[in-house]
Amino acid sequence: MKLSAPIYLLKRKARLLSREENIPLHVALDRIAVKEGFGGWSLLATKESAAAPAGKLFARLTPGDLVLVGARPGHGKTLISLELAVEAMKSGNRSVFFTLEYTKNDVLDRFRTIGAELTHFDELFEFDNSDAISADYIIKSLGLAPRGTLVVVDYLQLLDQKRENPELMTQIRKLKSFARDRELILVFISQIDRSYDPLKKPCPDIGDVRLPNPLDLSLFNKTCFLNKGEIRFQAAS
Rank of each mutant, 00 (worst) to 15 (best):
I206S: 07
Q161M: 09
P204A: 04
E183K: 12
L186S: 04
Q191L: 13
P214F: 03
G207V: 06
L211Q: 13
K176H: 15
L159K: 01
Y196W: 07
E167S: 15
P202V: 14
S190M: 10
M169R: 13
L175Q: 01
L186Q: 03
S190H: 09
L211E: 05
Y196C: 03
K174M: 11
M169C: 11
V187M: 04
Q171H: 02
N213I: 12
L175I: 05
R210A: 13
R180A: 15
R163L: 09
D216V: 05
V209F: 02
L184S: 15
S218C: 08
N165R: 00
L186M: 15
P214T: 04
N213H: 15
V209E: 01
L211T: 10
R194P: 08
E183L: 10
L175E: 02
M169K: 12
R182W: 09
S177P: 02
F178W: 11
N165K: 02
L186P: 02
E183S: 10
D181V: 13
S177V: 09
P212Y: 05
K200Q: 08
Y196T: 03
S177N: 08
P204T: 06
L219T: 07
S177E: 08
D197Y: 04
R163H: 11
K162T: 08
G207H: 06
D205C: 05
S195E: 11
D154M: 06
K162V: 07
S177T: 12
R163D: 12
C203N: 15
S195W: 08
Q161S: 11
Q171Y: 01
R173S: 05
P198A: 15
V187Q: 01
R182P: 05
P202R: 15
L219Y: 03
F188D: 01
S195V: 09
L219W: 03
I189D: 06
V153S: 00
L217N: 04
G207W: 04
I189W: 08
K162P: 04
D216M: 06
R194S: 14
D197Q: 04
I172F: 01
K200E: 08
D216A: 07
P198L: 13
L158P: 00
P198Q: 14
P198W: 14
Q191E: 14
S190Y: 07
L184R: 14
N213A: 14
D154T: 07
K162W: 09
Q157P: 01
F188N: 02
P214D: 04
D197T: 06
K201R: 10
L186T: 03
Q171M: 02
V187R: 00
K201V: 04
D208L: 07
R180C: 09
